[in-house]
């Protein structure tokens, strides 16, 4: 009895005791339903139906129709995520103080989150279509804004912008307003205060916001099919992966595309977060902490 108590104490000193058992269900869950399927997919991608272990990857990169889906996806997701973040900054900057109707405005901005991709797609088809209200207001010939790149782009902005805006607003509210007042006392103009005080403190938050918005935009699937041109200009990588798995039943190839998709996305995120880590050390020295 005394012996086991001593062991327990020694383990507890290293931070291991029975309370950690509470973690077991969650850890087992992640391993079983996330790590195992993911590794299974990676393994599957190295066992194509024909050829050597790397032939599925070689096939993907040799086929321009498949390879170009990476570029198509990035061409949609990067500008959309960038626009969402960049447009949020001035709007959030104006809205960071207290004013009447702020809660109403934030609530209104959350509304697009509820739309879901399908209503957004349906709405864009109705609204921006050749006989829709938008083209009725515009004089001249109808502008073609659906079933191509722009339709998907707009749907990414509608669903992504509110999300980016709320994140940026919360980062801005987290910046101590006295810093700006101090700068004003020292004679900084409004642009200087924004450029030299607020923006550097906000930059790490902007990087995080960009990453999260990019993840949303990168996994675009339903809107690329519904408002886009799924066989041509908006054939994004998730469509390619879906087709392999559910149309051609080529699971190794589908797993390959999924792995490539994850790798590309993590590369972009790692690049942005790497840049962000450079920023962050600089700005803490500026006295944020």
């Amino acid at each position: 009895m005394r012996h086991s108590t001593a062991l327990r104490h020694r383990l507890a000193e290293r931070g291991i005791d029975r309370q950690l058992l509470l973690l077991v269900p969650a850890a087992a869950f992640v391993v079983l339903l996330f790590v195992y399927p993911f590794l299974y997919g990676v393994g599957l991608s190295f066992q194509p139906e024909r050829g050597g272990p790397f032939s599925a990857y070689r096939e993907f990169f040799a086929d321009a129709y498949q390879r170009d889906t990476i570029l198509t996806t990035l061409r949609l997701a990067l500008p959309a995520a960038l626009l969402n973040v960049v447009a949020s900054v001035p709007i959030a900057y104006r809205m960071r103080g207290r004013f009447r109707g702020k809660r109403l405005l934030t609530t209104l901005l959350v509304v697009p989150v509820t739309l879901g991709t399908v209503l957004t797609a349906q709405g864009l088809l109705n609204f921006l279509g050749p006989t829709g209200w938008f083209n009725r207001i515009l004089p001249g010939d109808p502008v073609r804004l659906t079933n191509n790149y722009w339709g998907v782009f707009f749907s990414l902005v509608i669903t992504g912008f509110p999300f980016a805006f709320l994140l940026v607003l919360s980062y801005l509210s987290g910046i101590d307003p006295t810093l700006e007042r101090a700068a004003a006392t020292l004679g900084a103009g409004s642009w200087q205060r924004f450029r030299r005080i607020t923006l550097p403190l906000l930059a790490p938050g902007l990087a995080t916001t960009f990453c999260l918005t990019f993840v949303l935009a990168f996994s675009v699937f339903p809107s690329a099919v519904l408002v886009g041109d799924p066989a041509g200009s908006t054939r994004v990588i998730s469509i390619a992966a879906y087709e392999e798995a559910y149309v051609r039943y080529d699971y190794p190839m589908a797993a390959t595309i999924a792995v490539i998709m994850g790798a590309v996305e993590l590369l972009v995120i790692a690049a942005v977060l790497g840049w962000r880590s450079l920023l962050y050390t600089g700005s803490t020295a500026g006295g944020k902490g």
Binding site: L33, F38, Y40, A241, A245, A255, A258, M261, G262, E265
Partner: peptide
């Protein structure tokens, strides 16, 4: 991660 990337192996 985008849901599709782990969703396809998971569904398999």
């Amino acid at each position: 991660m985008p849901p599709i990337t782990y969703g396809i192996p998971l569904a398999t």
